[in-house]
């Protein structure tokens, strides 16, 4: 929110009692408001956001494999909590590697390219120490992000007296799956970038980025969220399958959705 507190627009009706007929005036602040909004909306369309290089490397092939191993190796259907917590280390490892791959494939900003041409030439570069630092930092933020995610899951109707462990583990999984790549690509703090990360994020979250569907990391996040939402559907069915237990369907939905979202984003960026 902006710090400038704006007064609540009050709509009132006035009746004049004066002897001279009063001429209606348009309330001044209305016109100001519209003018303000016009200028801001003009600014918004020209925001630059980081893009990924078009390469197969950024397709998260590890996600379906990992989801498969959850069933085959970790036996998630017999004990969801232990399977989800044991597999977490592997997931984080996979995602960190994926994050490093992503970092190598972020294309430079057009302005940066011009100004810093001499410093960086190669489009694909080796990971630097700063990258590792940033990934560690991003992991920390991701961990923090589990908490709001957990609350969102509860608000969507997850039970809040029982099965809290399951729900929280689900939040952790989704967070590392979806949030970490976003943090890597769109940066939460970047000294080099000329564009403020905060504006990038607000544009991203409100779909104001042009061609958002061509951003694989972003479509991956959307896919993950939509997949989790769809994952809630089979729970009430009375099929009595062991995979219907909380939160397996949501987890699978998240993994499937994230992978599909990413692939669709990659395909869209090719077109």
């Amino acid at each position: 929110m902006t710090s400038k507190a704006q007064r609540m627009p009050r709509i009132k009706k006035t009746v004049s009692f004066s002897d001279v007929p009063k001429i209606a005036t348009i309330p001044p602040n209305d016109s100001q408001l519209t003018a303000d909004s016009k200028t801001t909306s003009q600014n918004s369309s020209s925001t630059w956001v980081p893009k990924l290089n078009k390469t197969v490397l950024t397709v998260p092939f590890h996600i379906p494999m990992f989801a498969y191993s959850l069933f085959e190796h970790y036996n998630i259907t017999t004990d969801a909590v232990s399977a989800m917590s044991r597999s977490l280390v592997v997931l984080v490892a996979f995602q960190v590697v994926y994050a490093l791959i992503l970092m190598q494939n972020i294309s430079e900003s057009p302005k940066k390219k011009k100004t810093k041409k001499t410093v960086k030439k190669a489009r694909v570069r080796a990971p630097e120490s700063g990258d590792f630092l940033y990934v560690t930092f991003a992991c920390g933020v991701t961990l923090l992000g589990t908490l709001p995610l957990f609350i969102v899951l509860i608000l969507f109707g997850a039970p809040f007296t029982v099965l809290l462990k399951e729900t929280y583990l689900l939040a952790v999984h989704i967070s590392f799956l979806v949030l970490l790549p976003l943090l890597i690509v769109y940066k939460i703090a970047d000294n080099d970038s000329e564009v403020q990360p905060s504006t990038v994020w607000s544009k991203l979250l409100t779909f104001e980025v042009a061609d958002w569907y061509k951003q694989p990391a972003f479509t991956m996040a959307i896919g993950g969220v939509v997949g989790t939402w769809l994952g809630a559907i089979p729970i009430p069915l009375d099929w009595d399958r062991n995979w219907q237990t909380w939160p397996i369907t949501l987890l699978v939905g998240a993994y499937g959705g994230a992978f599909v979202g990413n692939v669709l984003g990659q395909l869209a960026s090719l077109v």
Partner: peptide, 13 residues
């Protein structure tokens, strides 16, 4: 107490 911001006359002239 507030100063009217959005005021409109009842009847257009």
């Amino acid at each position: 107490a507030q100063v009217p911001i959005a005021t409109r006359p009842v009847v257009p002239p």
